[in-house]
Amino acid sequence: MPATGEITTVQETETPIRDAACLVVVDTSASEPTVLMGRRHASQIFLPDKWVFPGGRLEDDDRVLASRFDSDFKPADLAHEIRPFALAAIRELCEETGLIIGRDGALIDQSAAWRAFAASGHAPAPGALLPFARAVTPPGRIRRYDTWFFVAKADAVSGKGAPPDGELLDLGWFTFSQAAELDLPHITKLVLEDIVALLKADPSISGLNDLLPFYHSAGTAYRRDLISCKVAPPLP
């Protein structure tokens, strides 16, 4: 998962920046909202034993599939360069949790990356996702990612697919106060705070701010700027 933490450092020139997406699923049906999180394996090179949101790397198949969706995104004018990230977030949610955010109907794309999702009998529904943050892993990390974070309400989940792939352990729903006590990467803490602020301003998660937080390198720490998701800003 794309984020920062106490991990082995390498030379910046040896660490390419890869595209990735994360999906924060929030259940607002109870008096206190909860968020879906899981713990990464201790044996994983990147962020071992850390608690994270479902997500992962963008695949070429996500870009191909995104080119076939003309209007099923939120906002409708979401930048074309960002649309594949929304689909990747849905695919990763399916792979890591077994949860489907989609609509009934066959998925035309039968690529390797989307085969498990297609087997559920659904097509992805990216209109259920709202982009709300972007982050680029600082230099010097063993992995670096340019990640778009999306949020979706739990009632957008339309079914279950194949069993989770086991990449995330101890999957569960946590209140935000409980989640804050977990062993989180620094960027996950920041994004969690952004979600809390979003819920305070828009409890129904029905709208979108014109400008979203963008975390990127400022020395060894994160800098927070505001960007639009209606254009694709270049890497800093």
Rank of each mutant, 00 (worst) to 15 (best):
K189Y: 00
I142A: 14
G166L: 08
P126R: 01
I108R: 12
G159F: 07
G140S: 10
A154F: 08
A86V: 02
F117L: 15
E81K: 15
G98P: 06
W114I: 04
D194V: 08
Q178D: 15
L130S: 14
G159H: 01
D104P: 00
P163G: 09
D183W: 02
V151Y: 08
D146T: 07
A88V: 01
G161R: 10
E181S: 15
V157Y: 08
G166W: 07
I108C: 00
L129N: 03
A154G: 02
P75S: 11
E181I: 01
D194N: 13
E181Q: 15
E193I: 01
A179C: 07
Q178M: 08
I100M: 05
I187H: 04
D155Q: 12
P185N: 09
D194F: 12
F69C: 05
S111L: 02
P124Q: 04
A116V: 06
I100Y: 00
A156K: 11
D104V: 01
A133Y: 10
A133H: 09
L93V: 07
G121P: 03
L107W: 08
F73W: 04
I187K: 11
K160V: 08
L169K: 15
P75A: 11
L168P: 09
D70Y: 01
I142M: 12
S120A: 15
A180P: 02
A116I: 04
E81L: 11
I101H: 02
P164V: 12
I90C: 08
F174Q: 08
A88N: 00
A154W: 01
P131E: 11
A119N: 12
T137V: 15
D104T: 03
P126K: 03
P131K: 09
L130Q: 10
P164Q: 10
W173A: 12
R91D: 07
D165Q: 05
A179W: 03
Y145K: 00
K189L: 05
A180I: 03
W114R: 05
I82V: 15
G102T: 05
E181G: 02
G98Q: 09
S177R: 13
I142P: 01
E96V: 10
R134N: 05
V151H: 08
A125G: 00
P75N: 12
L190W: 08
F117N: 06
L168Y: 04
G127V: 08
S120M: 04
A135E: 15
L182E: 10
L87A: 02
A88P: 00
A123F: 01
L190F: 06
S71E: 13
W173Q: 10
A113S: 14
A118T: 06
C94Y: 11
V136W: 04
K189S: 13
K153Q: 14
F149I: 01
G105S: 07
D70T: 14
A116W: 05
I142R: 13
A125D: 13
L93M: 11
H80W: 01
I108G: 14
V136E: 14
G161K: 10
P139Q: 05
L198N: 06
G161D: 09
K153M: 04
H80A: 13
L78F: 08
Y145T: 07
G127N: 11
A89P: 05
A119K: 14
R83D: 04
G172A: 06
A106E: 14
A162Y: 01
A152E: 06
T97D: 09
P131L: 09
